[in-house]
Amino acid sequence: MQELINAVSLGCIYMLFAMGMSLVWGTLDVLNFAHGSIFMFSAFSGFYLMQETGNSLPLAALLLVGVVVGALMSVLAYQLVLRPILRRAKDKDSAERQILIGGIGLAGIPVAIVQIQTLSNPFSFRAGSFEVASYDFLGARISNIQIVIWVVGVLLGTAVVLWLRRSRSGLALRSIGVDSEVASLMGIDQGRLGVAAMAVAGGMAGLSGALLCVSFGALTAESGDVLLLKAFAIIILGGVGSMLGTIIGAFFLAGAETLLIANTSGTWVDAVSFGLLFLVLLVRPQGILGRQEVRRT
């Protein structure tokens, strides 16, 4: 039971982080390697504001800061670096390569800033106007922050899936992912939608950053890197661009990790995400729910 609670909480965090990454990867062809540092820097901004305001920010404000900073950074990265790269690249392959390099380069900047600011020490939201407390729940323990994570995870997960499935802009965004030329011929403004998608992705990264910082107690400048790797495995597992796949992948990985910790020596945990990555790439390269490369003929 306790394992289940922990796995679901972890899965929610993975999901919030990976969904945004999957969204822009699947639709805008942006495999954003700066996603992890956006996640980290959003949490850091909350930390910074906490310090400036004498630890008086409530949890909701911290989460809001995370969302706003994450969305802003993501949009800026897109507008100033990633989109010009996409526009200038000769073909799809070189675009993908340059996006990757651009993302890695971008990722370094916030990491360096935080390393300098914190002297590479961990940072955390000092218990200010909220306390982490835990309650008995069906014979196990669940904390207030875990409950927040569950609620946010379920709401946002559903919202994003519905958005992409049902709404006009969601449909339009998906069409960009499949065939951007056809999309533009349908009158779809990829620039605006791209910005919207990047904002959603960044906002979710920022939100998970703030939530994680509260839940895990602290983050470091490098915290985003570990998560990035896991999100990568999750997205490959679920299928690039498939939101449902990403959700399944997130909970699958969280569940596998939790089970592994409970039953074996914990040193195998990271090997799992790597192992999954290889396995999926070998056996089912398009992921659990990913489409075959249909794309253009």
Binding site: N6, A7, L10, S223, V226, I261, A262, S265, G266, D270
Partner: peptide
């Protein structure tokens, strides 16, 4: 003695064990 790694982020599981 629950082994973790320097990349471990979620300690709920290890601590629980």
């Amino acid at each position: 003695q629950v082994a973790t790694q320097s990349t471990t982020q979620d300690y709920a599981g290890p601590v629980n064990k």
